[in-house]
Design a protein around this nucleic acid. Sequence first.
DNA 1: CGTTGGATTGGCT
DNA 2: GCCAATCCAACGC
Length: 212
Amino acid sequence: MSRRRLARSFFDRPAEVVAPELLGRLLVRALPDGSRLSGSIVEAEAYEPGDPASHGFRGPTPRTASMFGPPGRLFVYFTYGNHWMMNAVTREAGVGSAVLIRAVEPREGLDRMAANRGRDAPRDLCSGPGKLTQALAVDASLDGADLTRGREVWLEAGALVAPEHILAGPRVGVSAGVDAAWRFFVRDSPWVSRGRPGPPSRRARPRTQPTR
DNA sequence: CGTTGGATTGGCT
DNA sequence: GCCAATCCAACGC
C-alpha cells in the first residue's frame, strides 16, 4: 500500500488502459481546514475520442476544455442540474480522453463525508459519481487541478487490484456509444454504485428456465 | 433566443 | 423497480 502519488506518465495512456489500473488507488481530498478525506477507488469508466457517448465527442468546448488538457489533471463537469462528476484526464494534451471515477470505498474522514452528504450510512457516502463528489466537496473550483502535484486533491498509488478481482461491463447511463465494456469495478465490492447492469456472469441465475 | 436532454440521485410504489 | 427533480451547456433557427 503505497502513499506515493501516481505520476504523470501513468495517466498518459488510453483511458481504457488507465481505468482498471485506477481500482485500488487512494483518492485523497484535503480540505481548506486541513482535514483529509479519502477513499479507495472501486469503480471507474473510460471515455475515449470518437465515442459518441463522451462529452468530448464534438471537440473541446468551455465545459469540456480540461478533458483536452494534459494528462493527470482533474476534469469536473456539472450535469442533471445537481451533480458534479470527477474524471482523471488521460492521454496527451489535445486529445479528449478521461476516466470517470464512479465509486470509492470510504477510508478517511467518514464523519465529514456524512456531513457533506446529509446522510450517515457509509454505504451511501461514495457509491456513485455524484455522491462521491458531494462527499469529498469536489466542484467546478477543482476543474483542471493537477492530480500529480496539487494540494487539494490527488491520487496515491495504493495497491493495484488483481485482474481476477476486476469485472468489466457496459457503462452506466450511456445510451449511445461504442460497444465496449469500459466500466470496471471491483468484484463483490459492496461500495460500487447502484447503476450496476453488470455482465451476465455477475447476474443471479434465474431460478427457473425460461420457456422456449 | 428557445429547445433539448443529460457519464444521476432519492424517494415512492 | 420506476420516475420526477433540476439547470445549464450545446445546438439549431
